[in-house]
Structures are given as C-alpha cells and as structure tokens.
Simulated scan of single mutants.
Amino acid sequence: MLARETSQLLKKHQIRLDRRKGQNYLVNDHILARIVESAGITTGDVVLEIGAGIGTLTIPLARKASKVLAIEQDKKIARVLSERLRDLQISNVEVLVGDATRIDFPPFNKVVSNLPYQISSPITFKLLNYPFEYAILMYQMEFAQRMVAQPGQSNYSRLSVMMNLCTHTELLFKVPKNAFIPPPKISSAVIRLVPQKNPMVDEFFINTCRALFQHKKKKASKALIQSFHEISDRDMERRDIRHIIHKIDHQLMEERVFKLKGEEILIISAQLKELMEDI
C-alpha cells in the first residue's frame, strides 16, 4: 500500500528522486510502523523531523503528536507535502523549507527522522547542541555501526567516541535496501539516541579527538604530534610539540588510538589542555 501510494504521488507531481541528495523514500509499511512505535509519541510531544519528503513519516507522527516540525530542503517536495497535509486536514505540522544543517531548530522534545544520508554526521552533532528527550533516527548501516562501535573494533572512530561520551545509543533494528525507492546501495538501521550531558566534552576535546583519529592505527603520541595543527594554530617547532606530548600519561600515549576508551581520551585532552595553558 505504502509503495503504491508513494509511486503514484511521485508520478503525479513528476518528481524524480535523486540518490545523491539522499532521497531514498521508505515504502515498507511494516518498517514505518516499527519506527513510529519505537518513537513512543504522545499528545504532548513536539517532534522534529529532518528530511520529511512527501510525508511518509510526517503524517503518522502528526496523528500522535501535539506538533511536528517537518524540515525539507527541496522546495518542490515541500510543496507536495504541504498539499498532502491540507488534503488530509492535518493542521499540526509546520513545514520548514531549508537546509537542516544551517537553520536554527525551533523547540522540540523528540526527534524522529529518516535522515538524508549525506548529512548524517553534521546533523547528529548539531542535534547534541539542543535539549531533547531522545531521537529515533535511520542511518546507513555503516554509519550506524560506527555510532555503536567499541574500542578495538575496526570501525571504532571519532563518531563512536562522541556517541559513547555524549549519548546512550542503541541499534534497534536493521532495514533492508528493498524497503526504499530508489533502493540505496547498502542497508540501513534505526538507532535510538538519548543525549547525555558531558561538560568535559568541549571544543578542545573535539579537536584533540580529531587529531588522534586522523591516525587511528598509530600510537596516540605519534598521532598527536603528526596532527597537532588540529589542536593549536600556534607556530611551534616539532621538538617543542614532542616535549609537550611526552608530559602526558605515558601509558595512554603508548596505546593505539583505536583502542583508547572515550574516558581515556578525556584524560589525554585534559592533560594536554593544561600543558598548553602553561606555555
């Protein structure tokens, strides 16, 4: 039913979906129902949806929530969404036309989205700057697996560290390629993300983490020396950088980056920040 309805709407409005823009529309009724159920939306919720498309997810969310903030960048598709909402007499959806990575989000308390894949990373980090209860988000499988990866695993990354320190993230279920039109190249997964405040995760920590993971298979000391420009824009000699790095916890500096726990990177960042302030 959902697949047929979607195809008819796209044909009616002469819309050609573009994979490069992450326009992969969910057409599986069962998966849609699971997402909505996982979201646990109540009549008091204001839900943020990023990449609303023609309203596949927007409409069932609107029937449960107090309000839905539906962001869609494509102006033509946003007009189709607004038209559908009028036809269905749904008045509690605010359609926001724009780039979700650039616009400010109105207040919301939950997020439910089939995210455009090319903005998965910037949107995930942007969301962490806002207060909300939890998010139900669909990502490409590879990205979702990186979000929940643990130290020592091959796909452990800067993203994994940030998710571990700033959220409680759980992979709920997988979504096959044939659940979308057009089918993406790889499968997807639905994630439940609960934000957790961590005051130690500041800009200095983020820069330190970025420097480390540019050389994730090397020892932490070598990674920091080689990517010190990510941490400081001061014009420093390599020997002076080594001198600073050698003052940080020796055991942590000898560990391979991809084996470091988030808490250990916090220690490295805190010690490095203190040393830099003394220069």
Rank of each mutant, 00 (worst) to 15 (best):
P199Q: 04
Q8S: 09
L137K: 13
V46A: 09
A65W: 02
L57F: 09
I90D: 00
V93Q: 04
V80M: 04
Q271H: 13
K12C: 03
G40M: 05
T124W: 02
E72D: 11
H215R: 11
H13N: 15
H215K: 12
N155A: 03
I77H: 07
R192M: 09
V93A: 00
G53H: 15
L165V: 00
A33C: 12
F125N: 05
A189Q: 11
E254F: 03
I15G: 06
S113G: 05
M276C: 11
K76I: 02
E230C: 15
K126S: 10
L10I: 12
G262S: 08
I186W: 07
G22S: 04
R16W: 02
D202N: 15
T56I: 13
F108W: 13
E37D: 15
I50E: 11
A135P: 11
I265R: 12
P60W: 10
L137G: 13
A220T: 14
K216E: 02
R4Y: 15
Q89H: 05
L260G: 10
D240R: 08
T101G: 07
T58E: 10
E254W: 05
F204Q: 01
T208D: 01
I245G: 00
Q196W: 04
M147K: 10
T42A: 09
L96M: 15
D104F: 01
G262H: 12
Y117K: 06
I191A: 03
I181L: 12
V111C: 10
A270W: 02
N24D: 03
M162F: 12
D29K: 14
I136D: 04
T6D: 08
T58N: 11
I59P: 08
S120D: 06
V47S: 05
H243A: 13
R86N: 12
S160C: 07
G40C: 08
N24L: 07
I35D: 10
V46I: 15
L260T: 13
K273L: 12
M200S: 12
I241Q: 02
C166Q: 11
A62C: 03
K11C: 04
R102A: 09
S66T: 15
I119E: 01
E254S: 13
T169Y: 05
V148N: 02
A220M: 09
